[in-house]
């Protein structure tokens, strides 16, 4: 299952935090900052997976049984779009490559909802971020991967606010080169 879905920017400031298990606010913040440390030190051309941050690694070092391992968060997948990092923490039951695509679907859904999404949209409409996510993932289980259904699900909840005028903008859509970037074709 998916244990957490996080979005933060290049300075480590959170833009969306969603933990699918209850966790103290202070520990959430520590985890975010640990992951940010890891993610911001990646050399170019690295893979989209992070080593486990110390907070998580401490508890998953022993490999006593595969059953237990299936329950423990063991995979941190990230993707970088322009100024933003999207992170998924998940257990071994999720497919690593599929998670990369899942982030892509999420960003594309946001792009469709906001029309050329940029970080500002996400700051001012963080409620929509949550709404979009809950159309894709409930309780840590992926329920929808089709772009159109996600978008229509969010739209059914009400109009998506446009970003405020006269704020500067830089799209993350252009930065992410939707669909490119990866060697395998075919979306999950």
């Amino acid at each position: 299952m998916i244990n957490a879905f996080l979005v933060f920017n290049g300075q480590g400031q959170p833009r969306l935090t969603k933990f699918y298990t209850q966790l103290d606010t202070s520990i959430q913040q520590r985890l975010i900052s640990e992951i940010f440390t890891l993610v911001s030190n990646r050399p170019s051309g690295s893979c989209n997976f992070l080593p486990l941050p110390p907070l998580l690694a401490a508890s998953s070092t022993s490999h006593s049984s595969t059953e237990e391992q299936n329950d423990v968060p063991s995979l941190v997948t990230y993707r970088n779009y322009a100024t933003l990092y999207f992170i998924i923490i998940s257990t071994a039951t999720e497919s690593p490559l599929a998670l990369i695509d899942l982030i892509q679907v999420y960003v594309e859904a946001l792009d469709k909802l906001f029309e050329n999404v940029c970080e500002l949209d996400l700051i001012f409409n963080f409620e929509t971020l949550h709404a979009t996510l809950s159309e894709m993932i409930i309780g840590g289980v992926v329920i929808e991967t089709s772009l159109d259904r996600i978008v229509s699900g969010v739209r059914a909840q009400g109009t998506v606010a446009k970003r405020p005028v006269n704020e500067g903008r830089s799209t993350i859509g252009s930065g992410m080169g939707l669909g490119g970037n990866f060697a395998w074709a075919g979306r999950v």
């Binding site: 920017n9 400031q13 940010f36 100024t83 700051i123």
Partner: peptide, 22 residues
């Protein structure tokens, strides 16, 4: 990792152009 303090609230980065954060 003292470089990141999630408590600070500087929000100007959202306007910055697309620069590779790496």
């Amino acid at each position: 990792s003292s470089a990141i303090t999630p408590e600070t609230e500087s929000d100007d980065e959202s306007q910055t152009a697309i620069i590779a954060p790496t």
